[in-house]
Design a protein around this nucleic acid. Structure first.
Lengths: 239, 239
DNA sequence: TAGTGGTCTAGACCACCGT
DNA sequence: CGGTGGTCTAGACCACTAA
């Protein structure tokens, strides 16, 4: 994993220990003071690691008591957050396949310009792919990507992983997304590229994806057959 | 707001300034060094405030450049996170109404015991409510709450806000939830308590809700008519 | 009362961005 | 190069929990 940042190394160590059952749900971790001695670091650095664990749902910190380890097996299928289809399929198994329908550049129309928040004459990649899981095409992904930021796209990149290409080949840093989930009627396009079966509706996730320097570079519409859709979320209450 | 924690005061100040347009999308905030002088505090405390802004989607920090203010109006209807129906209706307007169908205590059956992770003989409140928006009943909420933690519940509490009662009257601290969103077929119960119209499916949000001391005290099934369902999410990529 | 996490400080060094 | 945010330290004091 990451070998540069001490707090990330410690975080990954602790995640691994929790996942391997060295700490069970309900246990408390060693105190911050103890951990800072075990890892030969300052308490603030330990706190940074523990806050990461807390944000990601591994522990709950309780004042005066300690850091309580939470249940890990409540959810099996993590589809939350910002994860590419490739990463998901790598995590979960081999029965995934991607069909690329379209990869081409076009000048953005009004609707797309407002969604991608960009000027007239900016060119946009349009990519259309369907995702097959266990022999059924259940997800239709329509990506719109700014051509001035991602100059080259090919069918083979779209077949592998666009995110991998953007991060590893172009060296760009995908950072965060704003998402919207709604239910919509099936379109003709859905019927063409998905095995919609008897369903008349699809679950649509619209994502606005940003780079680390805060530029909006991609808008994605991901259309899921409702019986194959699941989304999980870990939410902390803000006071 | 909070008058005790310096970093929360600063966070709230900055949120207000952003919402009032003192900083526009694309602007950079003053540097951490400047802010620490303006607010007469240390840089680490300013960083704590800025990290909160970043987590909540107000800014994006860019190394070597500054903290860039993000677009605020991309989403109108925040249904993400841990927000009670009462809080939502207070935020958004007056056309909300709650109908309470059932409020009673029962011994938990196997299924519920495993969901609430509790022993035999533990008693559970069962509350069933439908939510009316603009004259249509579009959400059915089924709550299961541990009776040993919340000993008294009444119809009038369920009509107002159970969360408000738990936090303000009982002094308990609702802290975080694990959620799952799926699409399911309409049940007879849905047809009885919702205006399902022609819809044959509902969007179901199942939440496992925890207190600040990490005890699981509530399980909720929230069933939404699909045309009135919207969920928004702000996700940061974890590396 | 002893031990826990929560806040805050003043300073150090580093990595990155723009000029 | 100067300015920015990112990491890390060693210490202080406080609020809370449990024995």
């Amino acid at each position: 994993m990451n070998m540069k940042n001490k707090y990330l190394v410690i975080y990954n160590d602790l995640v691994q220990m929790i996942q391997q059952g060295e700490f069970m749900a309900g246990d408390t971790l060693p105190s911050e003071h103890d951990l800072s001695q075990q890892f030969s670091t300052s308490r603030e650095t330990i706190r940074k690691s523990l806050n990461l664990l807390s944000q990601n749902g591994y522990i709950q910190k309780v004042r005066g008591k300690g850091s309580v380890v939470l249940d890990q097996n409540k959810f099996e299928f993590p589809v939350s957050g910002l994860t590419s289809f490739k990463e998901l399929s790598d995590q979960l198994g081999q029965n995934f396949k991607t069909h690329v329908h379209e990869v081409f550049v076009e000048t953005a129309d009004n609707r797309l310009r407002s969604r991608l928040n960009c000027e007239r004459n900016v060119k946009i990649w349009k990519v259309s792919r369907s995702r097959e899981i266990n022999g059924e095409r259940v997800i239709l992904d329509k990506d719109y990507i700014r051509e001035d930021i991602v100059p080259n796209l090919t069918k083979s990149i779209a077949e592998a992983s666009i995110y991998e290409y953007i991060e590893n080949e172009l060296g760009l840093d995908i950072s965060f997304a704003k998402k919207e989930i709604v239910v919509e009627q099936v379109t003709e396009e859905d019927q063409k590229y998905l095995d919609v079966e008897e369903h008349s509706q699809v679950v649509v996730i619209r994502s606005y994806v940003y780079l680390a320097d805060a530029t909006l570079f991609q808008f994605t519409e991901s259309r899921h057959r409702p019986d194959k859709f699941q989304f999980v979320d870990f939410a902390r209450r803000t006071k």
